[in-house]
């Protein structure tokens, strides 16, 4: 059985009279130590999906249907206290912007020790020892000194290292990393990403890596889920998603990768933009941008269906795959 399994997840935001469907029928599974990539444009629902696993969706969002099974337990059915014991302990999270993730008025040390003490029955001294060891592990120089620092005394890269250290502190089974390097300086993005991956590998932590960068996930994950406007477009093993995409959107994303383009040639771009959730077209949400679209696509929403080892939400997946 999978370590973490999301089944047919629906998340909605009731906003006055209208209700936004932020996630519409998303399913995926994550095995122990496995790495899964969630890919999609801004607004596709990646963060909402991540937060719904921890039951931390921003108000007024709520899980309307579906299940999140972790370690054999349905997270929708457990108590608040049981959920708290999972957060930051069995499932940790790394946020996008390290400048905003750490509390500005508490020291790095306080914010590390409290996480340990929330889940373990240990002394302050022991917690401090473990925290400093973790700071060393994420390659923070003069860890003892940094332990006493406030977040504003650290650079963005250092802060994200601290966040990674916090995420790993309790030896979690899963880390959800929501665009962990997007907010960082380009020069250190690869370094931080590499560090995170190494540590996940070393500690056999399963990783759910959220990003809009297909190039990154294609190199480091075993599975990929492509989201479009709150729905699954395509999912499957990374290698075959990259080499044999069966959804026109996935194809477009791959064609847009810099490696796929002739040097000096103009980068390919999928025409148009993703619709906002209050303005999703009838039928397949992708049809206005799709070269394969026909009457059926304009009329009926394609349900995800298995094709080979992929699941694809496209009426014409077979045609697309052979094109």
């Amino acid at each position: 059985m999978a370590l973490l399994e999301v089944r047919n997840l629906h998340v909605e935001f009731p906003l006055g009279r209208k209700t936004l469907q932020a996630i519409h029928g998303l399913s995926f599974a994550l095995d122990k130590g496995e790495r899964l990539g969630i890919v999609g444009e801004s607004g596709a629902g990646k963060s909402v999906a991540a937060f719904s696993i921890l039951k931390l969706i921003a108000k007024p969002g709520r899980i309307a249907a579906g299940e999140v099974i972790f370690d054999g337990r349905d997270l929708a059915k457990i108590s608040d206290e049981e959920m708290r014991q999972i957060r930051g302990n069995r499932i940790s999270m790394i946020f996008q912007d390290p400048m905003m993730t750490l509390n500005p008025v508490l020291t790095v040390g306080t914010q590390m020790v409290e996480c340990l003490k929330a889940h373990r029955d240990i002394s302050d001294a022991e917690a401090k020892r473990l925290a400093i060891a973790k700071l060393r592990e994420v390659k923070i120089p003069s860890a003892e000194e940094r332990f006493e620092n406030y977040p504003h005394q650290l650079s963005g890269g250092m802060r994200q290292r601290v966040v990674i250290a916090i995420a790993l502190l309790t030896d979690p089974a899963v880390i959800i990393a929501d665009e962990p390097t997007t907010a960082l300086d380009v020069t250190i993005q690869a370094e931080i990403m590499g560090l995170m991956l190494d540590l996940c590998r070393d500690h056999a932590v399963a990783l759910m890596l959220i990003t809009h960068d297909l190039a990154v996930v294609s190199q480091v994950t075993q599975k990929i889920c492509v989201l479009y406007a709150g729905r699954l477009a395509e999912q499957g093993p990374t290698r075959s998603i990259i080499t044999q995409p069966k959804h026109p959107y996935t194809q477009g994303l791959i064609k847009a990768l810099p490696q796929q383009n002739e040097p000096g040639a103009r980068l390919f771009q999928i025409p148009g933009t993703m619709p906002t959730l209050d303005d999703v077209p009838a039928g397949c949400a992708f049809h206005p941008r799709c070269a394969f679209a026909d009457e059926l696509c304009r009329r009926e929403v394609p349900e995800p269906r298995p094709i080979g080892d992929h699941r694809v939400a496209c009426h014409h997946a077979e045609k697309v795959a052979s094109a």
Binding site: A58, R87, S92, N103, E114, C115, A118, V163
Partner: peptide, 8 residues
């Protein structure tokens, strides 16, 4: 949100 995510 991060504080919640830490399970405090």
């Amino acid at each position: 949100r991060f504080a919640w995510a830490k399970g405090l």
